[in-house]
Design a protein around this nucleic acid. Structure first.
Lengths: 121, 121
DNA sequence: GGATCCTAGTTCCCTTTGGGTACTACGATG
DNA sequence: CATCGTAGTACCCAAAGGGAACTAGGATCC
């Protein structure tokens, strides 16, 4: 019974439902890795860049800004010298970590079932 | 102890590990939706296009091809007239559905906590 | 026999996103 | 006064996403 923009019940299969946008935010390689990297405590920008092997500073900034806008992470600036910035999970971000961790773990646990990716024997 | 290209243990945080590529494949809006759409049985191209509201045929084709290449779905052509093609989950695809379903469900269940997306009051 | 319909795409083109490298800002430090 | 370290931004190019129109090939309608 979707009237216009998914007012009553929510459905990721409805393009106009806000939860579709939320799925788009979360179902993203860098988001999944960034939130996971913050699971065991706050990290600074440089630490995240190192942990998320292969991410460029530009893309990392964009990812973090998007997560911050949606209230999944907090960005705290310590005006020390040299300036440093700490990213940490909000309560909401912590909650979102569970399904993302499951996805990451599934990938690790089942990678051997993907011959095309492992350059199979 | 990563030697070269993630030979020993697997880690999604290692850019050269194949499971990073797997994460990239699964942590994707259209992959998550397409696999979910096949959970309760095979569907034809047109049915998927309708269900994945907002997807263009081009992107749907690309998504399905990628999933097929990795062995997550099967593509069966019925040379009836008009030709029709059925997509279905493989055993591997069914297994992958669990974490993806969890992610989709989390999005639906928690969307109200995202004021910026719901155009909050 | 010709027009029309159906399905499952493909093609074209444009916009958005991703990505790499280099550069900036800022004060401390040598 | 040059250099370092941190957290980015700027620039430019490549890849992916996305919309609309078009293709193929037989069936069905008139």
């Amino acid at each position: 019974m979707k009237t216009d923009a998914c007012t009553r019940q929510h459905d990721v299969y409805d393009a106009s439902c806000p939860c579709r946008q939320l799925l788009d935010l979360l179902a993203n390689k860098w988001s999944a890795l960034a939130l996971g990297a913050l699971e065991d405590g706050p990290r600074r920008f440089g630490a995240l860049r190192d942990r998320l092997d292969g991410v460029s500073p530009k893309v990392l900034t964009a990812t973090l800004r998007r997560l911050e806008e949606q209230g999944l992470i907090d960005r705290t600036v310590y005006p020390s010298v040299p300036l440093h910035v700490e990213y940490s999970l909000t309560a909401l971000g912590e909650d979102a970590c569970a399904p993302l961790a499951a996805l990451r773990e599934w990938a690790v646990a089942n990678i051997d079932r993907f011959p095309a990716l492992t350059g199979a024997a």
